[in-house]
Computed example of a mutant assay.
Amino acid sequence: MKIERLIIGMLETNGYVIYDENTLEAFIIDPGDEPKTFIDYIDRNNLKPIGIILTHYHYDHIGAVLELKKKYNIPTYIHKKDAEGLKDPYKNHSISNFRKAISIISDRIVVDGDVIKAGEIVLEVIHTPGHTPGGICLKVKNENIIFTGDTIFNIDLGRTDLEGGNYSEMKNSIRNKISKWDDDIIIYPGHGDSASMAYVRKKNMEFLDIMRKR
């Protein structure tokens, strides 16, 4: 499996293109902006996108979805609890530059434990609410890799004071799921650099604060 991180948009969101090197089938994860950046990379490498996976519905993770769907005629995957948020991803958001909401119809609804496949790539959906009600992480089967969206970053956690956020749910996601990940798991977050869980357990103060308050 190959992973390409594309840092896009005014909030420097991490969008990912992951693909099977044999079949060239690819997933696009969180295309938040700059659709041409994704298209150029995909076409230059002769990839075959088969789906867009959204870790949550916030605008900075979905801005390029419509153009990519139109270009490649592929479905969008999102957790059922975040599907409604796609109808108005700018609702109550503090950034006023975005003057209108976009409406995206999700083709594929996922829930905890679902599996999504592209070639030999198998992704397991892990429901991790907190940043949004339907926030998800994506575990790559047979790899120590998890795409975490805005649930957890290398040195902090996703905000819970934005639309859909819930600190109590974030605590539960950290304690009941993320804290159980092995040290050699590498997280690929929605913003910032990747990191091992060993690093997270040393440097992520918000993660440590939740774990200490058990």
Rank of each mutant, 00 (worst) to 15 (best):
M1P: 07
R5D: 04
I8G: 04
G9Q: 03
G9I: 08
L11I: 10
G15P: 00
Y19Q: 05
Y19E: 00
D20A: 00
D20Y: 05
D20T: 01
N22Y: 15
A26H: 10
F27M: 07
I29G: 00
P31C: 08
E34I: 09
K36A: 11
F38K: 06
I39P: 03
I39G: 01
D40P: 04
I42C: 05
G51D: 08
I53K: 05
H56V: 03
H58Q: 12
Y59S: 09
D60Y: 14
G63E: 02
V65D: 00
L68G: 00
K71G: 07
Y72W: 10
Y77P: 01
D82C: 04
D82A: 03
A83F: 06
E84F: 11
G85S: 01
K87Y: 10
Y90F: 13
N92A: 13
N92H: 11
N92G: 11
I95F: 15
I95C: 14
S96V: 13
S96G: 12
S96N: 12
S96E: 14
F98L: 15
R99W: 12
I102D: 09
S103P: 02
I104F: 07
I105K: 14
I105C: 14
I105W: 11
D107Q: 12
R108S: 14
R108Y: 11
I109C: 10
I109P: 07
G113R: 05
V115C: 10
K117H: 09
A118F: 02
E120R: 13
I121T: 03
V122R: 14
I126D: 01
P129W: 02
G130I: 03
T132R: 04
G135A: 12
I136Y: 05
I136M: 09
L138R: 04
V140H: 00
V140C: 04
K141V: 08
K141D: 10
E143T: 08
N144Q: 04
I145T: 13
T148E: 07
G149D: 02
G149K: 02
D150V: 02
N154H: 13
N154S: 13
I155F: 10
D156S: 12
G158E: 05
R159M: 15
T160P: 04
L162H: 10
G165E: 05
G165Y: 09
N166D: 15
Y167L: 11
S168P: 05
E169T: 05
E169D: 12
K171P: 06
K171D: 08
N172Y: 14
N172P: 07
N172Q: 11
I174G: 02
R175K: 14
R175P: 08
K177N: 09
I178L: 13
D182A: 15
I185Q: 07
I187C: 08
Y188C: 08
P189N: 01
P189M: 03
G190L: 00
G190S: 01
H191Y: 10
H191N: 06
H191F: 10
S194C: 15
S194N: 13
A198L: 11
A198T: 01
Y199N: 09
R201Y: 08
K203H: 11
E206I: 06
F207L: 06
L208C: 04
L208T: 04
D209K: 14
I210K: 05
R212A: 13
R212Y: 09
K213D: 13
R214I: 15
R214Q: 13
